[in-house]
Amino acid sequence: MPHGDEQEVLDRIRQGLIYTESEAAFQTSSRRTDLIFEYNHTPPGEADRRRSLLVAILGSVGERTVLLPPFHAGFGSNVHIGDDFFGNVNLTFVDDVEIRIGDGVMIAPSVTLTTTGHPVHPARRVDYARFSESIVIEDKVWIGSNAVVLPGVRIGYGSVIGAGSVVSRDIPPMVVAVGTPCRALRTITDDDLTTRTAAIG
């Protein structure tokens, strides 16, 4: 049970307010960095070992999960992944608070999901001051290579995030969204059932 000072910091974190590295130091025991290192160095043939490590690292993990190493996480314990997940190499979770990923989600190489940002004014960045807001990725989302998902974002069911996009606001369900900042380009329709790649425009 957190004591008074710790509870006050946790309350600020949950509200998306500024907190510092020193103030949050009591959370260090929730970091799974040694286990992440071990996972990233486990031979490909040791699928059972990888699975047991992933269960120990993540806050929760569904069935038939593929997470190709290396992956990186600040904590690991704040990441929750559903069933039938595929994460390609160099997936980074900046999970100072929760990242919740639904079922059937696919994430391409070198994607960053960051729950944390820093104040704009340098005087407010002393002691690595930061704020954190949870990320939610709903079922059946596909995120393209080198995309960045920023704090507080929700990506709706079935949507596709184009490669290289910076997702700074919520994306509705069943759209193709691209760009910096990422914007919904078009709705996904039944016409997409008959094409390999969707025509744009």
Rank of each mutant, 00 (worst) to 15 (best):
T180L: 05
V166L: 13
L53I: 08
R125H: 07
I57W: 01
L35M: 13
S165K: 11
R51G: 04
V167M: 05
Y128F: 15
Q7N: 10
F26S: 02
G74F: 08
S29W: 11
G104H: 04
D103P: 01
T112A: 10
M106Q: 10
F26A: 03
D96P: 00
I36T: 01
S145P: 03
V160F: 09
G201N: 11
M174S: 12
H80W: 05
F93N: 03
H41K: 07
V167I: 06
I101K: 02
D84I: 02
Q7I: 02
V61S: 11
I101F: 03
H80C: 04
H118D: 05
M174A: 10
G156E: 11
L58K: 06
L35D: 13
F131R: 04
P69Y: 12
G156Y: 10
G82L: 05
R14P: 03
G62M: 04
T116D: 01
V148M: 14
F86R: 03
T20L: 09
S165C: 09
Y128W: 14
S165G: 08
R50K: 15
L35W: 07
L68R: 14
S145K: 05
P44Q: 00
T92N: 04
T42H: 12
V105F: 01
Y157V: 12
L91W: 06
G4N: 14
R130I: 00
Q15T: 02
A129I: 08
Y157P: 01
T194R: 06
S30D: 12
G201I: 04
Y19G: 00
R124I: 00
S134C: 02
A177W: 12
P172H: 09
R50L: 10
T33M: 05
T189A: 03
H3R: 02
A47D: 02
T33R: 08
D139E: 03
T28H: 13
G144Q: 13
V120N: 04
V97T: 15
G74C: 08
D191Y: 04
G45F: 04
E38I: 04
V126K: 15
C182P: 06
S145G: 14
I107D: 07
A129Y: 09
V175D: 07
L68I: 12
R64S: 05
I18K: 14
G179L: 08
P70A: 09
G76H: 05
R49V: 15
V175G: 09
P181S: 12
S29N: 09
A199V: 02
V61L: 08
V55Y: 03
N78I: 01
G158Q: 07
